[in-house]
């Protein structure tokens, strides 16, 4: 237990009493500031807003508190706790991270029941057994008997939990894997090989200097990279040269991908910062 407490507080090893006091004080100041900022926001907002409010209305210290308001404080707290990782790994980050994992699992489970099991098996099939055969009710519609197959195979999958019956789950997996593999082969060859080769050749045109250059870049690029990835021949001599060109092309493409990745990552941060400034702090925007 002491071990867990230690980990939960995120203490570093070999910390002196003075350092510990300083650290706790810093945490207290940060938490106090967070609380004070939230109280100020609620008082300033005063319930006048175009936003849709929740049902809960509670007015401590003259501020209007709604479920939405509480939600925004929780969200802001989580956001800041997770960003605290940028300074150093700490207990607040770990707590927020684990809570997120748990909530994510819970949400997925709830949806799995409603979307995968209830909508696909209970309503079209099992419902009729439960309500017609068992409870003797009249239910409109007819059961979809074909669904017995996935239901049985689904139970086979769940047999994974019983060690002696584990082999049953392999039958179900073999069905899914076999279907996926078989179905994909013609489609992938068509969409991602034949069409690609066809359009590379279709793009070959030399009617103007620029067009000819583009054609050349396209052809050299595709062929040299393919040769670079073809390991069955030794990369020496002419083949070596072509595969070297392939590397250059790859580098240009990786550079382009990197540029786009920066763009994407920054956008994610912009989204969060915007949320903090506009939705939590409610600072009016200039311009």
């Amino acid at each position: 237990m002491a071990d867990a407490d230690n980990a939960a507080a995120g203490t570093g090893q070999g910390e002196t009493g003075r350092q510990r006091a300083l650290r706790l004080a810093a945490v207290a100041v940060l938490l106090g500031t967070f609380a004070a900022v939230n109280v100020l926001i609620f008082q300033k907002e005063g319930g006048h807003s175009l936003r849709a409010g929740g049902e809960l209305v509670w007015k401590p210290l003259g501020a209007t508190v709604t479920w939405e308001g509480i939600g925004i404080v929780v969200a802001a707290g989580l956001t800041l706790a997770l960003y605290s990782f940028l300074y150093a790994d700490n207990a607040f980050f770990k707590a927020a991270e684990h809570l997120y994992v748990g909530v994510g699992l819970g949400y997925s489970l709830v949806l799995a029941w409603f979307q995968y099991i209830k909508a696909e098996l209970y309503v079209p099939l099992v419902k009729y057994w439960v309500r017609e055969s068992w409870l003797g009710e009249q239910v409109p519609g007819r059961p979809d008997w074909k669904l017995i197959v996935p239901m049985i195979l689904g139970l086979f999958l769940l047999a994974r939990f019983v060690r002696r019956l584990e082999w049953m789950s392999r039958w179900a997996f073999a069905f899914i894997i076999g279907l996926g593999a078989g179905m994909s082969i013609p489609l992938f060859i068509d969409a991602q090989v034949l069409r690609q080769v066809e359009q590379t050749i279709a793009a070959v045109r030399f009617d103007a200097l620029l067009v000819a250059l583009n054609t050349l870049v396209l052809l050299v690029g595709v062929i040299s990279v393919l040769i670079y990835f073809y390991f069955s021949i030794e990369h020496r001599g002419a083949v070596g040269l072509v595969s070297k060109i392939g590397i250059w092309f790859l580098m240009i493409s990786f550079g382009a991908s990197f540029g786009y990745t920066v763009m994407g990552r920054m956008a994610l941060l912009v989204g969060r910062v915007q949320w903090l400034i506009q939705d939590w702090l409610r600072i009016p925007i200039q311009g």
Binding site: L269, V270, Q274, I277, I285, Q286
Partner: peptide, 8 residues
């Protein structure tokens, strides 16, 4: 990111 969010 913060400054241009405040002053667009």
């Amino acid at each position: 990111i913060g400054l241009p969010t405040l002053w667009r």
